[in-house]
């Protein structure tokens, strides 16, 4: 069973990535915050008796399900959203880009020149935009596999699909990102 300290450290270690992951899916900061908070609550309410090593996997699954629940609620509210993979881009004025650019400039003045800082922020922004453009399942598989560092089996369990599907989704996601970023002149 996880102690309060272990739970606190775990939540602290995942909260920012969970928020960004939710933002990539729902494209709304407020909704993403709600999703992360709901996921944290569900984890402690139903799974706090589990050993600490099981928490990452459980949290990823809860986060995915809570995000899906959010989409389902949206779907009932708005008939336009009929498919998770059919979202249109909201436009060029992404809600977090300006703040991130400003914030990243502040943080990087100590170690980087203004030019490289801006360039770096631009790369972040482009990568995030391309990730948002991926189909939902590819994005989910890519983020779990490479960002959350789950292995193929864990990702498959969290997504409720086969390991083969995870490999396919990841492969397509990486290829799409590589192609899109190259087209924009971004070489990693």
């Amino acid at each position: 069973m996880a102690t309060e300290q272990e739970l606190s450290e775990f939540l602290k270690s995942v909260e920012k990535r969970a928020f960004k992951r939710s933002v990539y899916h729902v494209r709304n900061d407020e909704a993403a915050l709600d999703i992360v908070q709901d996921s944290m609550m569900k984890l402690v309410e139903h799974y706090s008796h589990k050993p600490p090593e099981e928490l990452p996997m459980l949290f990823q699954r809860i986060l995915s399900n809570t995000t899906l629940d959010w989409f389902r609620r949206q779907k009932t509210r708005n008939a336009l959203f009929s498919n998770l993979g059919d979202f249109e881009s909201e436009g060029d004025d992404g809600e977090f880009n300006l703040l991130e650019n400003l914030d990243s400039s502040d943080a990087s003045t100590q170690v980087e020149s203004a030019e490289s800082s801006t360039q770096r922020a631009q790369i972040f922004r482009e990568i995030e935009m391309e990730i948002q453009e991926l189909p939902a399942r590819q994005r989910e598989a890519f983020l779990m596999r490479y960002w959350e560092e789950l292995d193929v089996a864990e990702t498959a369990a969290a997504m409720g699909c086969s390991e083969g599907s995870v490999k396919t989704h990841c492969s397509r996601a990486v290829q799409a990102l590589n192609k899109a970023l190259r087209a924009k002149g971004i070489q990693l």
């Binding site: 790369i123 972040f124 960002w147 990486v174």
Partner: peptide, 12 residues
């Protein structure tokens, strides 16, 4: 790519 995302997440 994940490393870039990590760096970006730290600048919330």
């Amino acid at each position: 790519l994940a490393a870039y995302l990590d760096a970006s997440a730290q600048q919330l």
